[in-house]
Design a protein around this nucleic acid. Structure first.
Lengths: 201, 201
DNA sequence: GTCGAACCGTGACATTTGTCAGGTCGGATC
DNA sequence: GATCCGACCTGACAAATGTCACGGTTCGAC
C-alpha cells in the first residue's frame, strides 16, 4: 500500500485529489496539509512513501519544504504538483531533490501514474517543460536583486522598498535597473512579470 | 438524475471534480469544457440542469457566459465556482443571473450540497463574502477607467496604452489618475491590484 | 431644456523612475 | 597578490508618471 501525503492549499482541490487517490486500490492518503510549514511535521508523524507538494503555499514554499523533507525523512519521495510550469521552479525542484514535477493542466490519470513511476525509481518530468528550463538558463538575478524585485510586486515605491530593506533609495534604483536590464524589460513591472514567469522569485 | 456541465480550465481540477460528481448516485457530468467560449454551445448540445462555471477562463469570462446561458438556455441554473472570492465578482455573478457562488477554498462536500440546494431553488452564497460585497459597494470605475487599468496590468507604458486604445497620452494619464484617486492608491500598480482584489476588472 | 456624468482632449507642473558613471568594501578564486 | 564579483553607496541627468485646471462633446434623466 502506497502511503501519500498531500500538501495543497485549495480545499476543494485537496479534497478532490484525496478522494480520487483513495479510490486507487494500492494507495492511501495518510496526511493532508494546507500550509507549507506543516509538511515536515505531518510527514514525520504519518511516514508517507511519497509527498505531493504544491509550490505556492502559505507559510513555507513547497520547494523549501521539499529540501527539508529530503534531510528529515529521506525515505519519502517528493512529487511537485503545481499550477505553474515555470522553468525556474523545475530547476529549483530538481535541486531540492524532487523526483518528479507535474503541472495541474494535464488529465487526472497522470497523477496516479506519476506516483507509481516515481515509486518505481523513475523521474517524472514534462518533456516540454524540461526543454524550456534548459533553454531559459539559470536564474541570472542575484539575491539582492530578487529581494528588491519581490518587494516591488505590490506597487511599492522606491522609498517603500528602501525602508523595508534598509537600503538607500539610490541603491534600490540601481538594483531595479540591473533587474530590468537582465530581464530585458522596460520597467520594474515588466521585470517583475518576466521574473515571475520564469520562476525566478 | 441531475445533469451537470463543468467549465474549468485546469485539467486536473476538472477531471477530479467530474469524477467526484459522477460518484454521486443522482448526478452525472454530461459535458466538460476548458474554455469560456465553448460553454453555450456545449450546453445547448448536452442540455444540463446546472452549469458549474469557473470565472477566469480562456476565451470568455465565466460571468459573461453565465449571462449568455440565462438567455439561451433559461432552464439551466448557474453555479459559479471560483478560486477568488472577490466582492465585485459576486455582484456581477448575481447580475448575470447566477443562482450560487462558491469559492474553491471550502471542502469538496460543499459542492454536491450546493448543487442540490440550487436545484431546490435556493440561492447559495457564502455569508462572509456577501457581507464583504455589500460593504465594498459597487464598482466606482467607469468603463474607460477599467479599460485603461486592464491595459496597464502587464507594465505597459502610457504610450503603449494610448496606442492600444487609440487615445491621447494625456487622456490615458487622466484616466489613470482618476482610477488611482478612486481606489485610494498611490500609483497605477497599486490601483491595478486594488481593482483586481475587488473584482472590478 | 437643463443638468449631470461619461468621454476625450490640452498644457503646465512636481515628483518618481530609470540610467549612467563613478567609488568602497569583503569574500572567492586563481 | 591580483582579479573578479556582489553588496552597498553617491550624484547627476533624462524620461516617465501623476496631478491639476481647464476646455469641449454627447447622451440620458428629470
Amino acid at each position: 500500500m502506497i502511503k501519500v501525503l498531500l500538501a495543497e492549499d485549495q480545499g476543494m482541490m485537496r479534497g478532490a485529489l484525496a478522494l480520487l487517490l483513495d479510490l486507487e486500490e494500492d494507495m492511501q492518503v495518510v496526511a493532508q496539509v494546507a500550509a507549507g510549514d506543516q509538511i515536515v511535521a505531518a510527514a514525520l508523524d504519518a511516514r508517507p512513501d511519497i509527498a505531493l507538494l504544491d509550490i505556492e503555499l502559505p507559510g513555507r514554499s513547497g520547494l523549501d519544504a521539499a529540501a527539508d523533507l529530503r534531510t528529515e525523512l529521506p525515505s519519502c519521495k517528493v512529487l511537485i504538483v503545481t499550477t505553474f510550469g515555470r522553468p525556474g521552479y523545475l530547476r529549483r525542484a530538481m535541486e531540492a531533490g524532487a523526483s518528479g514535477f507535474l503541472v495541474k493542466d494535464g488529465p487526472v490519470e497522470d497523477l496516479a501514474a506519476a506516483i507509481r513511476r516515481v515509486l518505481a525509481g523513475e523521474r517524472v518530468i514534462d518533456p516540454g517543460l524540461a526543454a524550456a528550463a534548459l533553454s531559459a538558463g539559470p536564474n541570472p538575478l542575484t539575491q539582492r536583486e530578487r529581494d528588491v524585485l519581490t518587494a516591488a510586486v505590490d506597487g511599492a515605491t522606491v522609498a517603500d522598498i528602501a525602508g523595508r530593506l534598509h537600503l538607500s533609495q539610490a541603491t534600490v534604483r540601481n538594483y531595479l535597473s540591473a533587474a530590468i536590464g537582465k530581464t530585458g524589460t522596460r520597467n520594474r513591472m515588466e521585470a517583475v512579470r518576466a521574473a515571475r514567469r520564469n520562476g525566478w522569485l
